[in-house]
């Protein structure tokens, strides 16, 4: 009886949804509104209107800045949720995880130390040059987070933790949200709307500065969050 009721509810929900989906324009059709004016507008006017040669950056940080702002808040909330479910305190995170005191291979340590600076330079390039070439804050931040994870795996947990000092760690984790709030309020003060960019051509450098500030915020926040999730999962419960 219960099963029949469940099936009936599911069918009752499915039929109107399927009918609504059938009304939608065909996926990938050339006459769809997204293909007739949205994408050409982004591709033709993006660099001029939004201030970045990389159209992806234009869309993410300028045209759909609110969307990215919300997304950044979601990622930060997810970190808080992960920390809450795993119930790891900062003191436990600082403790050495099991197996970390095993003797380390000098070859691996040497090669990682030799490659790490190049990876770091690459992430800085991705973050700071992300509005002109492929890449951006999130990509650079993720690779930097992976670098921190690599260093704490090969050179020891303590070394990795020392890269993000405990006092500034919460601020670094919240960097993306804070950067968005700062740039958003600046936009409010100067241009009259939250996260508004100056549209005058004389103020192009301001626009570029705000894009770079957002990219740096996303990068630092992403790296700190990925590293923290790793340390939290590794910590002794």
């Amino acid at each position: 009886m219960k099963r029949i009721a469940v099936i009936a509810v599911l069918v009752a929900a499915f039929v109107p949804l399927a009918a609504a989906v059938a009304q939608l324009p065909t996926f990938g059709e050339a006459s769809n509104p997204t293909n007739t004016y949205l994408v050409p507008r982004y591709l033709q006017k993006g660099p001029e209107e939004a201030g970045a040669a990389n159209v992806v950056t234009d869309v993410i940080l300028n045209y759909r800045g609110y969307d990215t702002n919300g997304e950044v808040v979601v990622i930060f909330t997810a970190l808080i949720a992960a920390l809450a479910t795993l119930l790891v305190r900062p003191k436990q995170m600082a403790a050495t995880p099991p197996g970390d005191d095993a003797p380390r291979s000098p070859i691996v340590s040497f090669v990682v130390k030799a490659i790490a600076p190049f990876i770091a330079v690459f992430t800085v390039y991705l973050v700071l040059h992300g509005h002109l070439s492929p890449g951006g804050g999130f990509q650079g931040g993720t690779i930097f987070g992976a670098l921190i994870i690599l260093l704490s795996l090969t050179l020891g947990h303590k070394y990795g933790l020392s890269l993000l000092p405990e006092r500034s760690r919460p601020w670094l984790q919240a960097a993306a949200v804070l950067a968005f709030i700062a740039v958003g309020l600046l936009g409010w003060a100067l241009c009259g709307a939250y996260l508004a960019y100056p549209s005058y051509s004389q103020l192009e450098w301001v626009r570029e500065g705000w894009l770079i500030a957002l990219e740096i915020g996303i990068g630092v926040g992403g790296a700190a969050i990925f590293a923290t999730v790793f340390w939290t999962m590794e910590a002794e419960p």
């Binding site: 492929p134 890449g135 993720t142 790793f230």
Partner: peptide, 16 residues
């Protein structure tokens, strides 16, 4: 852009 993200997140961090 997506390729960079996929390589960093999918192949790197998630695997770890």
């Amino acid at each position: 852009d997506v390729a960079l993200t996929e390589a960093a997140v999918g192949a790197g961090v998630t695997t770890v």
